[in-house]
Amino acid sequence: MDIILGIRVQEGTIIAASKAATRGISILKDTDDKTRILNTHNLVAFTGESGDTVHFTEYIQANIQLHTMRENDLELSPSAVASFVRNQLATSLRSRKPYQVNVLLAGYDVKTNTPTLNWIDYLGTQTELPYGAHGYAAFYCSSLLDRHYRTDMNIDEGLKLLDDCLEELERRMPIDFKGCYIKVVDKDGVRDITK
C-alpha cells in the first residue's frame, strides 16, 4: 500500500514516497523514509515486501558507495546504477528466494547534464520514463500525469503537478498513507523539500 511517485522535469527529478510504515491493518510509524541516497546524484525509492526492501536497497547503496571509493570518487552514472540494480534484481529473481522489491531511481547525469527517472520492478523490468509510480499510486495518478505532464516543465511546475497527484491520492485512497516525503535530485545533488 506504499506510495512512490517520480516526475522528471527540465532541471531535475522529483520523488515522493509515503511516510507510513504498515503491517497488516496497523500503521507502525508515520515517519518512514522509503528512500536511500546511493551517491551524490542518485536516489532510490522503494516499495515491496517489508524487510526485503530495506535489506536490498542498503545492499545496493553499499555497493555503489564501494564503487565510488574504489574508483577514486568516480561516481556511477544514473544509467549505470539502473543497469546494476536491474542486474541484481534479475539475478535475485532466478534464486531460491527472490527479493520482492520495486524501485524508482532518480538521477542526474553530470556528464550530459540530464535528469533521469528509472522504473524497475522485482522482475527486472527496467525503463527510463518521464514520470512513473509503483503500486496503487500508479492506478490513481497515471491518468493525471498523462493529461498534465509537459516535457518543458520546471521544478515548480513539477511540484505543483505532484501536489495534484497527492491530493487525488488523499481523496480516493481508502487508506491514510500519512503524507509523503518529497525529494529532488538535480545538478546540486539530492535535497529534501518535504513541506
Binding site: E71, L74, L76, S77, S79, A80, A82, S83, F84, N87
Partner: peptide
Amino acid sequence: LKTYNEQIPCEL
C-alpha cells in the same frame, strides 16, 4: 559492460 551497460573506464 554487462552489469553497468557502460564501457569500463580505461584505468579501472
